[in-house]
């Protein structure tokens, strides 16, 4: 690569002081990875490994103990409208209607716009997530979980951020609703050059949506162990990708990592055995392009074991 990547995470470390004055809790240490412009990247790892912490650092709501993040050549500091966030619990303002929640974001983003323009723009994004025909005037408490998350996604897309951050956005939704909103998300994303970074604990969701999946080992001292390329052509649909040759190779690779290697690779609480010299980018793996040589990649995991607890 000749020029610098769009987003560069450099030696990111997060430690929390221990409440009883003992050794601090190191959530992760020396994390490095890049994201290119327009890329859709998912990160997968077990609950508590520090995914949300990474996301909060990227959004600017939290700051790392050391290391930094550069976006578009600028070091990040604090929250900014360049980065839109969709939280797992939707984080809509309950006293505002769905439309007004989106307007809230658009007004903050484009304070110079006229009232009509703000409204039109907001309405357009609610239309994209299929939330019009009366539902736009309802308060969040009068909407289902899926509808709330649609509003939250519309709000984040409507501010047209350079980077969109999603923290397990579909974790609380039933499978059917999740499928529909995944389709909507992919449709909106395809029509834009939006860069997306998304946390998920659903392997199938990651394969459907992502260009690349980052695999995180268990904490403390969590690492981004691998960067798995999803070599499945777009547009993808849930019905078709399972027939793609690479699908089960990727899937098995991810499931095997979560089931086994995330634990084996975890460094535990004792300090580094290997001395790091310089930033270590995660190893790039392309399971779909490998010829099936090992027996491990051929064994197909039954669908009911597919979902890993997040």
């Amino acid at each position: 690569m000749t020029d610098k990547p769009f987003l560069e995470v450099d030696s990111l470390t997060k430690r929390y002081p221990s409440p009883d004055g003992g050794a601090p809790l190191t959530v992760f240490e020396d994390i490095n990875f890049d994201i290119d412009k327009g890329e859709f990247v998912c990160i997968i790892g077990h609950s508590g490994c520090g995914k949300s912490t990474i996301m909060n650092v990227l959004s600017g709501l939290d700051s790392p103990t050391s290391g930094g993040v550069t976006m578009d050549g600028k070091e990040l500091s604090g929250p900014s409208l360049d980065r839109g966030v969709v939280f797992q619990n939707y984080s809509l303002l309950p006293w505002l209607s769905a439309l007004k929640n989106v307007i809230f974001g658009v007004k903050a983003r484009y304070p110079e716009w006229s009232k009509e323009k703000v409204r039109e723009h907001s309405y357009h994004y609610l239309e994209l997530v299929g939330l019009v025909n009366g539902a736009e005037h309802r308060k969040p408490s009068q909407l289902s979980g899926g509808m709330r998350q649609r509003v939250s996604i519309a709000r984040a897309f409507a501010i047209q951020p350079k980077l969109l951050l999603l923290d397990e956005p579909f974790g609380a939704l039933d499978a059917l609703t999740r499928g529909t909103i995944q389709d909507e998300l992919i449709r909106i994303w395809s029509g834009s050059d939006q860069t997306v970074f998304m946390i998920t604990h659903d392997v199938d969701e990651a394969i459907l949506l992502a260009d690349r999946v980052l695999l995180m080992t268990n904490g403390p001292f969590a690492q981004v162990a691998e960067s798995v390329a999803i070599d499945i052509p777009r547009p993808r649909s849930r019905a078709d990708i399972i027939h793609h040759d690479g699908y089960y190779k990727i899937r098995n690779h991810l499931v095997e990592f979560l089931a086994k290697r995330s634990k084996d690779l975890a460094r535990g609480s004792d300090a580094s055995e290997e001395t790091n010299n310089g930033p270590q980018k995660p190893k790039v793996v392309r399971p779909a392009l490998n010829t099936p040589s090992s027996s491990e990649t051929e064994s197909i995991v039954p669908p009911n074991l597919m979902k890993i607890k997040g």
Partner: peptide
Amino acid sequence: KDWVNVARTHELDSLRTALIV
């Protein structure tokens, strides 16, 4: 805190955060 975070990610200043959130 979630709602305050919404204000922060939308770059609202203290006065606006106080008044509209």
